[in-house]
């Protein structure tokens, strides 16, 4: 509390709000994209009977075990002007993807993918398949069944996935450093800022920023667990 009080008095020098809001923007965007992207992937992983499904599952989960620098390195190469993606992006927008906010978004999506897909898939798998069968015999298509039955019954997994990918992106470091570098207002996120402050012996600044990050992460997770305990229990 004392540290926070100090932070409020001295404002900017202790807390880089630009980096903070950039990080929030990044995490929100990534969490939103991961809902759109993660739901179909999780659906496919849950219900597909393809033999090579395990490969996709392993691929999606890779960021959990892969060192962020390794992931970051490959993303950097992928975004660079020598890759097809980097080249076509450059042809369309006129600048490269590396060291931009967009590049950061792409890297973060890959980095946080398992944190969204795994809770989604786990909650889909927990939905009684007979409910889906019932929905189909009642004339409702598989697509509508997903939105009317599967998704409402998976709401806790959905919230968990969104919260985890948000919190995970808030605190990412390795991938950001590799892909985005450290450009204020563009790619400098909170964790980069902490690293910067420590490098410059600004320990009180690092302390405040770290504490803010810690509190946000804790608040997000405790909200998720509280919600999962009380609400959405259909029994």
């Amino acid at each position: 509390m004392l540290v926070l009080g100090t932070a409020m008095r001295e404002g900017k020098t202790l807390m880089d709000w630009q980096a903070f809001w950039l990080t929030v923007r990044l995490a929100t965007l990534v969490a939103a994209v991961l809902v759109v992207l993660g739901l179909p992937i999780a659906y496919w992983i849950t219900y597909s009977s393809r033999r090579w499904k395990f490969l996709v599952e392993a691929l999606v989960s890779l960021p959990i075990v892969l060192p962020p620098t390794v992931l970051g390195f490959y993303v950097l190469v992928m975004l660079g002007p020598r890759s097809p993606l980097g080249r076509s992006w450059q042809a369309i927008t006129g600048h490269t993807l590396a060291f931009t906010f967009e590049g950061l978004v792409i890297g973060s999506i890959l980095y946080s993918l398992p944190f969204a897909v795994q809770p989604f898939a786990a909650s889909f798998a927990a939905v009684d398949p007979r409910l889906m069968a019932a929905s189909q015999t009642l004339g409702v298509s598989k697509f509508k069944t997903f939105f009317r039955i599967v998704l409402p019954l998976s709401i806790s997994g959905l919230v968990t996935g969104v919260a985890l990918s948000f919190a995970h992106t808030m605190g990412e470091f390795g991938v950001v450093l590799m892909v985005g570098g450290n450009i204020p207002g563009v790619t400098r996120t909170v964790s980069i800022d902490i690293y910067d402050k420590v490098q410059a012996f600004n320990y009180s600044g690092a302390n405040v920023t770290a504490l803010v990050l810690l509190m946000i992460s804790f608040a997000v997770l405790s909200t998720v667990y509280a919600l999962n305990r009380r609400v959405w229990v259909w029994k």
Binding site: D128, R130, A133, A134, T137, G139
Partner: peptide, 20 residues
Amino acid sequence: PPPQARRVGYVFQDLALFPH
């Protein structure tokens, strides 16, 4: 035809009522 197109009333063993 898929189940949707058959108009079959089916009461499952565990009923499969939609809990939500």
